[in-house]
Simulated scan of single mutants.
Amino acid sequence: METLLRVLAALPLAWVHRLGTLAGWLTYGGSPTYRRRFRAQVAQAGVAPADARAAVGAAGRMVAELPRLWRHGVAGVPLRCEGTALVDAAVAAGRGIVFLTPHLGCFEITAQAYAARWGDRQPITVLYRPARQAWLRAWVSGARDRPGLTAVPADLSGVRGMLRALRRGQAVGLLPDQVPPEGMGVWAPFFGRPAYTMTLAARLVQQSGAQPILVWGERLPGGAGYVVRFEAFDEVLPAEVEAQAESAAAVNRAMERLIRACPGQYLWGYHRYKAPRQAGPAPAAAAAAAPPAD
């Protein structure tokens, strides 16, 4: 497996994406459960199947491009950023930033792109889940600890590290549409269906006074590179940390807006509506009207 990662890291991006597209379609064709979940979540979001079709191959491209980004970062990758004035203003003000990114496009590249441009002035800390295999941990940890970029584990120590970074006026980044462990989320609407949603994203903003900014990395066709798009978070979160459900719903609405802008690059096969074992079922009245996730 490590040999395959080395090969993917060495190939031109266009070839990596071609291979990834093939892998995405093979996975879709070979897994009825994945296929049902993909279709059900597209329907739940009200997205036309034709608009989401490209996401089948995009899921494979996302996996295939990771070794190249882990090994080489953004070096040699065609990359441009849009909406940079928003970030420039926050960095100039010395205000902490909470970057919110859905499972959309190339989310691995967003923190690296930020670190390459602003990391010398305002470093960024991101959450990650350590790989189980020792050899893969070495690949990932080396890739995500770069100048201006620090990765911390997705546990209590990592959360504390993010809060410390924000209080120093630095930036942090996380994926708020990732299903959190039991006790770290609340039920909030996501495309009209209750989804167990992390409270951490909003709490980081509320407890530190940081500025929330949306960001996602659009993957250009033909291996032409990426566009990292920074956008304003256009809602005001409740000041009270206790208003967790209301805050989580606001974050979900922001994620929905980004996803609707590019449904062909969202991970529709991600099990967004699963519930941690001890979290209990989704609110029955609302969940009954929703199609099954798998």
Rank of each mutant, 00 (worst) to 15 (best):
V91G: 04
T101S: 14
G105M: 02
E108G: 10
G96T: 10
L104K: 02
A89E: 15
L86V: 07
C106Q: 08
L100G: 01
P102T: 12
F99G: 12
L104D: 06
G83C: 08
C106W: 04
V87K: 04
V87E: 03
V98S: 09
A89F: 10
A89D: 15
G105R: 05
C106S: 15
F99A: 09
L100P: 03
F107E: 00
L86I: 07
L100V: 14
F99E: 08
C106N: 15
R95E: 00
T110R: 03
T110F: 03
A92I: 11
H103Y: 11
T110I: 10
I97H: 01
I109A: 04
V87M: 00
P102R: 06
H103M: 12
C106H: 08
F107P: 00
A93F: 11
A85D: 05
G94Q: 10
T84N: 03
C81I: 12
E82G: 01
A90F: 09
A89G: 12
C81D: 10
I109W: 07
D88Q: 11
R95M: 05
E82D: 13
G83F: 03
E82Y: 06
G96D: 01
D88R: 09
T110P: 02
R95K: 15
V98E: 00
P102C: 14
R80W: 07
F99T: 12
D88T: 00
P102Q: 06
G94D: 01
G94W: 11
V91T: 09
T84F: 03
L100H: 00
G96E: 03
A92S: 12
E108K: 08
R80A: 09
A90E: 06
P102S: 11
T84K: 04
T110H: 01
V91H: 08
C106A: 13
I109F: 05
C81Y: 01
A92K: 12
H103K: 09
G83R: 02
F99W: 09
L100N: 06
R80S: 12
E82I: 12
F107Q: 07
T84M: 10
A85W: 05
E82V: 15
D88W: 09
A92F: 04
E82N: 02
I109M: 03
A85T: 09
P102W: 02
L100M: 14
V98Y: 00
V87P: 06
A85S: 15
E82K: 04
G94P: 12
V87Q: 04
G94R: 14
R80T: 13
V91I: 08
A85N: 08
I97P: 03
C81E: 13
P102V: 13
A89T: 12
C81F: 01
C106T: 12
I97L: 07
L86K: 05
R80E: 13
G105A: 10
G96S: 09
L104P: 10
